[in-house]
Design a protein around this nucleic acid. Structure first.
Length: 546
DNA sequence: GAGCCTTTGAAGATA
DNA sequence: TATCTTCAAAGGCTC
């Protein structure tokens, strides 16, 4: 079972993710080359001291599942961290003490000692980024997407198309339903607004293949520059409570990227679909205060995808995310254990931060939200059929929706009006048993992917008779049961999709792996991430602004 | 314009 | 406890 080094008793991450890292001497050299400036080092040390104090704050004990242990783990880790920094100055993004800046850069200052907290102060400690964000510091997206006060070269409303919310600070309050004293009062003078973060990077530089000189250390150094100087590393004052406010937003008012305002695209995607079908319901809901949606923290693969997507797009002619994701999925499996471990570790840290930012949040919230809305829809349409039972009768139970079969509330007629057939496309995902037959669209995609992709974009073919060459990284107890059988994940790759993923045996032969795309080679330099992804976001922004 | 597609992993829900 | 389901990101595509 692959395990990441726990980093000092941190018990928040999944144990199964714990993987022992090996030192990357090459990276160390890069780190040396790109070491912090003295000022950065001073900042870092100062931050570490502050962080240590933060973790001792009584406030940090607030409401969290297993938080005490977590805090202990954090303190231990931070102590390690401190030591590590003293030794290395910059551990690099992918070292065992990986992501040295990650926790303390991303942690909100509510963990500051009480002495530094002023209820009247709205200052926040936010790693403000420009359009460029660090790819692996998964939490950077959090601060980035919602905190970008429109760099001069970018239009303010550039993100409207795809729901990437970038608003000027003065608009944040209304946009995120900020509580009084929230971010909406943050002024540029507070120093969090983005400045030319990566001044040397063109806004769309991510289109360029990852440059080998984009070491993690240098990117981290640049990333550190986001902090804007020593003053911004000083403790900032926060409201006291760690509890989420009524809006569900963190009381600091930090618009965590996981928070999606109700007006956001994704809100509509998943939660408010039914709203468009019931104007009355919609009007009713509009009267209700909308709560921002706190999204799930990204898992390792999602982080990997975010980082590598731009790269794949650049290398390939593919544009469809579905196709890109298939490639990424294969590349993911082609990653070495160490490479994957980096993302698992990052995901673990992201979960940690997410837990600290939103102590009361649970994935259940988003589950319930959707279900609740469905229920509301069904309840607000008294004229519609209520149950499959009434519609099909006991003799046709095979036509019942799943919940009806389980004697739960029928979901077939949530939308009222008609009585869609059991195979209705709208309901197939809900009612139909898992189908392994690709839908026409999926079939189209599938066929598309069977075509010879553009050079360098072909997923690495699995070695004959060998599903993979990598050690398992997934939780050993984890099993998958996706409703859809991925078209490309046929027997040659996974065999039974319900078998635990990564049930591979590691061999020393990675020939095919290294043949995997030019990106694979560049990916070998795991340090590539950072700036490249930062630039990637730039392009995304630009693209979306078009 | 809403929703689908596609990937893996985490976690909640269910049997 | 094991299995199933949902959600997270992304953006082109379909209807």
């Amino acid at each position: 079972m692959p395990q990441l080094s726990s980093g000092g008793g941190d018990d928040l991450g999944a144990n199964d993710e714990m993987i022992a890292f090996k030192d990357e001497g090459e990276q160390e050299e890069k780190i040396q080359e790109n070491a912090f400036t003295e000022r950065d080092l001073a900042d870092l040390k100062s931050s570490l001291v502050n962080e240590s104090e933060i973790n001792q704050s009584p406030n940090s004990a607030a409401v969290r599942r297993g938080q005490q242990g977590e805090q202990r783990g954090y303190q231990e880790k931070h102590r390690e961290h401190h030591d590590g920094v003293s030794k290395h100055q910059d551990g690099g993004m992918y070292k065992t003490q990986a992501y040295p800046g990650y926790p303390f850069l991303m942690l909100p200052d509510p963990y500051l000692p009480n002495g530094s907290i002023s209820p009247s102060s709205n200052k926040v400690s936010v790693v403000q980024q420009s359009h460029g964000m660090h790819p692996l510091t998964s939490l950077l997206p959090y601060s980035n997407e919602h905190f970008n006060p429109s760099p001069p070269h970018l239009p303010t409303d550039m993100s409207q198309k795809t729901g990437i919310h970038r608003h000027q600070s003065q608009d944040l309050s209304g946009y995120y339903s900020l509580p009084p004293g929230g971010v909406g009062q943050i002024s540029p003078s507070m120093g969090w607004q983005s400045q030319p973060v990566y001044p040397s990077l063109p806004p769309c530089g991510f289109r360029q293949p990852y440059s080998s000189n984009l070491s993690s250390a240098s990117s981290y150094s640049r990333y550190r520059s986001l902090l804007g100087g020593p003053s911004q590393m000083q403790p900032r004052k926060f409201p006291h409570s760690l509890m989420l406010g009524p809006s569900g937003m963190h009381p600091t008012g930090i618009p965590h990227p996981a928070i999606v305002p109700p007006s956001g695209k994704q809100e509509h995607d998943h939660y408010d679909r039914s709203m468009y079908m019931k104007p009355q319901v919609e009007a009713k809901r509009e009267k209700e205060p909308k709560k921002p949606v706190i999204k799930k923290p990204l898992n390792a693969f999602m982080l990997y995808m975010k980082e590598m997507r731009a790269k794949v797009i650049a290398e390939c002619t593919l544009k469809e995310s579905a196709a890109i994701n298939q490639i990424l999925g294969r590349r993911w499996h082609a990653l070495t254990r160490e490479e994957q471990a980096k993302y698992y570790e990052l995901a673990r840290k992201e979960r940690q931060l997410h837990m600290q930012l939103y102590p009361t949040w649970s994935a259940r919230d988003n589950y319930k939200r959707r279900k609740r809305e469905k229920l509301q829809d069904s309840n607000t349409d008294p004229g519609s059929p209520k149950k499959c039972r009434a519609r099909f009768g006991l003799n046709q139970q095979t036509d019942w929706c799943g919940p009806c079969r389980r004697k739960k509330k029928c979901i077939r007629y949530l939308q009222g009006g008609g009585c869609p057939s059991p195979t209705s496309s709208d309901l197939s995902a809900i009612d139909s048993p898992p189908s392994h037959s690709p839908s026409p669209t999926r079939h189209h995609l599938y066929q598309q992917h069977q075509l010879p992709p553009s050079p360098g974009c072909s997923p690495p073919p699995p070695p004959p008779g060998s599903p993979s060459t990598h050690l398992p990284l997934s939780p050993p107890t984890h099993t998958r049961s996706h409703t859809r059988l991925p078209p490309l994940q046929t027997a040659s790759k996974r065999g039974d999709p319900r078998q635990p993923k990564h049930s591979y045996t590691h061999t020393s032969t990675h020939t095919y792996t290294h043949l995997d795309l030019s990106g694979r080679a560049s990916h070998g330099d795991t340090a590539t991430l950072s700036v490249a992804k930062a630039a990637g976001l730039s392009l995304k922004v630009l693209t979306e602004s078009q």
